[in-house]
Structures are given as structure tokens and as C-alpha cells.
Design a binder for these strands. Sequence first.
RNA 1: GGCGCCGUGGCCAAGUGGUAAGGCGGCAGACUGCAAAUCUGCUAUUCGUCGGUUCGAUUCCGACCGGCGCCUCCA
Length: 473
Amino acid sequence: MPDFRLYNTLTRHIEPFAPADGTTVRMYTCGPTVYNPAHLGNFRTFLFEDLMRRTLALRGWRVHQVMNLTDVDDKIIKRAHEQGKSIVEVTGPVIAAFHADRVFLRIQAAEAYPRATDFIPQMIALVQRLIDRGVAYQAEDGSVYFAISKFPSYGRLSRLDTREIKSGARVIQDDYSKENAQDFALWKAAKQEDEAAGAAWDSPWGRGRPGWHLECSAMAMDLLGETLDLHCGAVDLIFPHHEDEIAQSEAATGKTFSHVWCHGAFLLTEGAKMAKRVGNVSTVQGLREERISSAAIRHFVFNTHYRKELNLSDEALEASRQAVRRIGDFADRLGSETTLTLGGTPELARAADVAVELAEAALFDDLNAPEALAALFDFIRAANAELDRRGGDRSAVERARAALTRIDSVLDIVPGREAPDDGLVAWVEERLAARKAARQARNFADADRIRAELVGRGVVIEDSSAGTTWKVV
RNA sequence: GGCGCCGUGGCCAAGUGGUAAGGCGGCAGACUGCAAAUCUGCUAUUCGUCGGUUCGAUUCCGACCGGCGCCUCCA
């Protein structure tokens, strides 16, 4: 069994990883708050989690991933209020857009996408459990808070246990009801707007709604059990969100909430964190309109290690677009009947084996996708050179195909080829026939004119001894 | 102020205590009628700066410079 290692935020070390039961990884990933379409920064995290689940699968484990959809929170209620809608009316279309973007980016579906509003009873039960254990209390304002003073290991994940608010920190809101400024809300007493937006539920503490941290704990434990193998998110969730999840979960169960915590780094634009409040966001929809392919976006994201900040730029995106073009050409070549007929060499088969071995080793070592990409490109160069030799061995070609398929089962960066419509095919074939005749007559002026005509409609041709192939770009 | 991350060729980006993967771009060559694709060669004596440890540091330690993030609800 190959090693599998992950960087655990809890210990700040790369350590061996395996699911507790030896077969299925139970993984919780913090999903979007659905008040606004997710931006590319959000999706960098979801792509990191996609890389995670695919790599776990490559390693041979089953994956049970849960990603929550936060469909009740301050911003959603505010938006509902502004638009005179209920929170459901606000979140419905945003959730649909999220999945559309997710599918476009080839992010595999998680096993479950629970919505916070569908788990209110479980959340209430969790709050009750915490009150019963004496670690939560209802304050004068009707809200229920978690008393961090009752949870000694609070701050272990974020290492901010001796926190003090100093200049430079965001100013804390006055909240007279809490016993301690650092206590966080489990259950928020309903306000007028909450009721109006359909964001209030009955509870033993009166009408109210769940706090943000509470929902993740309640849903994770309900769907995956009280101890998870893995919990993922972006670095900004380390504090307070994940810290608070640990506190309320472990205070309630007395068990470890998650063995391993993994956090992805930010996507930056113009040197600053991409965020709605900074106003420098790029959306998946926007990139689609610029005709940036999902393969190029995946390459761009996976070309940098998930724990390192990544700057979005046109230059980097263009480089990824070209890199992915090369991968696509190679995939086409490898997949063609002609290539199978011409066959490969023993060296081709060997290169395929080496590529798989190196890519797996890289991915299993804390998801080193950049190194896996390097292995893939080494393979592409070696394989192209070997294919030029027409070794005649079909099995070598099949082995190379299998290698590409295996590596791409994680990266999924072979660009898709949309099947051209029949009309275009007929036209291109007629033009190519005319060009062939012109070339045979050594009338290169006409031949080049036809080629320019094809390029004008986005058709690029490639002559080889085996004939002329074409593709739409 | 506290905690933490980062700084590698024109651009993007891996990496190791023993002398720098890969991609994009560029240059030259092969192939081609010309292209395209592909292949071959070249493109960092050097890894922010200055010290220290070491036989040896880009990799460990310290200082400094520069960039970024978190410090209560932001992926």
C-alpha cells in the first residue's frame, strides 16, 4: 500500500492519513453561503476538495463527502428583506447557479448537499445537549451562546488561544448579552426581519434561527457520525468557524470531531484576497464568457499547490490554456485509431508506467498536483517521441491510454471536444478535398487560400503522412 | 499589537542539507511545398538581502526588506 500523507492544520505537520474504518473516508467540506453566486476564489477551495476526493478514490478508498449549503444567515436575510422575498426565494436560484458552475468546472458531486434549513431539529437537539452539559447558556436577549471558558482546549486549531484585540484587528461589535466577548451564538433569537423572511423556527428558547457554526456540526454529525476522518475548507475558516465547530461538537460528544483538518489557501487578484467585499471577484460565468475552458481553469488551479496562495492573472490563464491545448492534442493522438494501428514501443509502455508511479506518489504526498502535472508533461513528451517511431505494439499504446486515463481521473484536465455539427463537417470535408486536389496539382496558392478559409471559421488543420486532420479551436 | 504564510529564470511554479522538476513564452534546428502539430538543443553557476551553523545551504537558524492572510460569522 502506498503512503498517503496530508498536512493537518491541527498539528501543523504532514502526517500519514487513512480512514478510521480502513475503507471509507468520511469527509466534510464547508460549502457556500448561498446569497450570491460563488466566485472563483470560492471555487478554488471546491476544486481543492475535488482534488482531495478524487485522490482519495485513486488511492483505493471510498469517499463519503458532505458539503453543506448555508441557506440561512445574516446576508441572506438582508437580501431577502431588500427584495421583499423569503430566504427560500433568495437561495433557490443561487443554489442552482452553484451547481451549474460546479458541473462546468468538472467538480464531482458530493454524496450529500444538506441545507441548513432542513436540519433545524438536529441543531436544536445539539444546542439542548450543550445546555444540558452546562457549556451553553441562554442570555437576556434570548439567544443561546457557547461558553468558551467551559471548553479548555478552545483555540487549539487556530492557535489563537491567547487572543487579544489590538489595533489593526477588526472592531468587535458590542454585545452586552454575552457573558464573555468571545462566546459565540449557537441559537439567535428571531428579529422582525427574520420572521418576515421565513427565517425563524420554534425552539425551547423561543423563536429563532441557528448560528452559522452550529449548522456544520449538526449536519456533519448527523450525516457522517460524531467523528469524521477529514474536514476541509479554506484558511479563513480556521478561526472562528472551525474552532467553534470543534468546541461545540466535542463539548457535546466528548469525542474527537475530526481527526484531520485540511485548509486551502486563497486565490488572490491584483495582490489581494478575492472577496466580494473587496470587489475584485471573478465569476465562473465571467470566465465562460471569455471562453476559458474548465480544463484550463483546473490546470491553472492545480498548477499551484493547494496550500500556497495563487494569483489570478490573464497571463497565467493564457499559459494554462496553452498547456491544456497540448494535453488535448496528445489525448487526441493517443486515442486515435491511426495511433493504435501504428503502435508503440517498449519505451512507450515504460514511460506510461513511470508517469503513473510519479503522479500517484506526488498526489499521495499531500496532494502535490503541480508535481503530478510535471509527471504528466514528461510523459507527454516521451510518449510523443516514441509514437513518432511507430513501434507497432498495440499493447504499448493501450498502456499509455490507461496511464493518461488514470492520471486524468484525478486532474480531469483533458479538454473536451465538442462534436462539430454535421453541416460544418460536410463543409470542412469538401474544402479539404479541394485543398488536397490543389496540393496534388502543386497549386499551393489555392491550397493556402483554402486553409485560410478554414481558419477563418475556427478550423485548424494538420497535415501528416497519414493524412490531414482538423479540429475546431 | 498577536498569530501565521510567502518571496525560485521574461511569466506561472515544484523541490531537496550535496549542488535547481514541469508549464507558458523566446531562440535555433529536424519534419513540412509553406504551415500546424511533434521532436531535438539552448534559454537561473542560481533560488529577496545580509549574517550564522555546516566539509557543503536555495533547503536549517537569526536579522532585515518586500508581499499576503487571520485576529467573531469571509472559501
